[in-house]
Design a protein around this nucleic acid. Structure first.
Lengths: 213, 213
DNA sequence: TAGATTGTTAATCGATTAACAATC
DNA sequence: TAGATTGTTAATCGATTAACAATC
């Protein structure tokens, strides 16, 4: 398996392949070909083949890939096997939803706790996860060496929280606030603007209909 | 303003420009240049200039763009001015969080209601939004001509809900379940795999450190 | 006028697609 | 052996970057 120069697009497609194979359930064949996956996901078969070749070296002509082995290789490659911790700041509805979402575990992600300024919501127990007051944030991050922070606070507070996270040793930020965060060199930021995503879908739908008229 | 052939990448960057300008608050200058935006967002200035040129024609050499006018043009272009309706299926934590999230309004999106099989959570009132039983879904979609559906149900049920939505006249689906949805030709699907997104961030962080050692 | 900025045209880069060779 | 499939090499396409002309 050669790791170098996997394109961003490939990285985004790999989880799709994984999902598809995992969802086969009882219909899981012992072997699966790039063409089969491509057809199911409506992708070009050469794209899928190249993506898989970047991750696995176990493809056999005529046979394809051993499904189980390919799933394992994808999970390994995507880092789903070594668990990584993250914390959430902002225990509003979105923060709580993320805190208790069960799906992160399958991807090797563990949400340690959430933090909120509102003392009311704090110390509650959410399916085993705790919501703590802000003053405990820095200490916990340092003690547990948490490197990933999730920002689920209102836009107005996002930059201040971002600064605090960085001060606490956080190196990567998943930002749900619809603001651009100003961070020092070397800090990773991934913006997740849910409203803009939905609006984009709406725009694409409108355009499709305009094109047909 | 010429609309044709706006690239996917441009479409994803436009909301960033909009966010940036909206966040300036009291510091909002009367005019703003592509270079200024590019520096703040750490993008190449030619990229920003081209993106803006695709949306606006009001840029003046030496002066730049009128900030207010540019904001208005971006909002208009992204369709934030004409309101579009959407419904949510699945009123778990994520569904409820989306149902009551205030940020959709700014992007011209209106969540009409959520639906759930669990009668317990139904008929509750969430900041003016209602959670209804599944049997009311088809009728409401048809009556209000809702074209956008949001899937926030467990992965196992996502395909069945997807089929129901399409039967109800839904044309675009925002899918939060980590499954590939099989849809007929012409139905738009945007997959939002939150767990995979976070895991990708974790992987990128790991890789960065590996590269430095 | 000079300089900053827009906007356009050409060059480069990267990703996708096509064609083909290798192999079980 | 023949055919399906992998994997590789070349061609195409699209997006980014660079260079430059236009203009307020």
């Amino acid at each position: 398996m050669v790791n170098r120069s996997i394109s961003k697009q490939t990285l985004l497609r790999l989880p799709l392949y994984l999902n598809y194979m995992k969802q086969l359930g009882e219909n899981t064949p012992e072997h699966i070909s790039a063409t089969t996956i491509a057809e199911a996901l409506r992708l070009n078969h050469v794209v899928v083949r190249k993506d898989l070749a970047a991750v696995s070296s176990a493809g056999k002509p005529k046979v394809g890939y051993n499904t189980e082995a390919l799933i394992a290789e994808l999970e390994e490659f995507l880092g789903y096997n070594d668990v990584d911790d993250a914390i959430i700041v902002g225990a509003g509805k979105l923060g709580k939803a993320l805190l208790t979402y069960g799906g992160f575990k399958d991807c090797g992600m563990n949400i340690v706790a959430a933090f909120d300024i509102d003392e009311e919501v704090c110390e509650e127990d959410y399916s085993g996860k705790r919501i703590l007051t802000m003053d405990k944030l820095m200490d916990l991050c340092e003690r547990m060496r948490v490197r990933i922070g999730i920002i689920a606070v209102p836009a107005e507070n996002a930059q201040a929280i971002c600064n605090l996270l960085i001060e606490s040793g956080i190196l990567a930020i998943w930002n749900f606030a619809p603001v651009h965060l100003d961070v020092p060199e070397g800090i990773l930021v991934h913006n997740e603007n849910l409203a803009a995503s939905l609006a984009l879908l709406s725009k694409q739908l409108k355009e499709k209909f305009d094109a047909n008229t």
